[in-house]
Amino acid sequence: MIVMEVLVSILLLTGGLLSFLGSIGILRFPDVYGRLHAATKSATLGVIGILTGTFLYFLVMHDIFVGKVLLGIIFVFLTAPVGAFMISRAAYLTGVPLSKQTEQDDLKKARSEAEKAE
């Protein structure tokens, strides 16, 4: 029991910490695209950590199999990258500027060539 309590605690704390660090990342990155890196990766693993902890807690301590939590993990895993893809694409197409540190922009090149071809 003690081992499981420790494991659940570690999972919950790691999940919370990752979500917190992800929020700091959202504040610190210079542009939308950098912020999306923080929002997708940390938030995904953070939420998965918390949900896994919850699932294990109810399974071991109370003998309840909470299927909804498992579904939550799967859907977060599936939707986070798709969401990031759509947001960054929409941001780029509506002309949200890249940060000044940006070194390379292959997409701009490709798009101007495509416009020329038309």
């Binding site: 990342g25 610190r28 940006t102 292959d106």
Partner: peptide
């Protein structure tokens, strides 16, 4: 990502690559 976020000075060089 954590290593980048917690760096005191954020010296990243982002870019879009094909």
């Amino acid at each position: 990502l954590i290593k980048i976020i917690l760096r005191p000075k954020m010296d990243i060089t982002p870019g879009i690559i094909a």
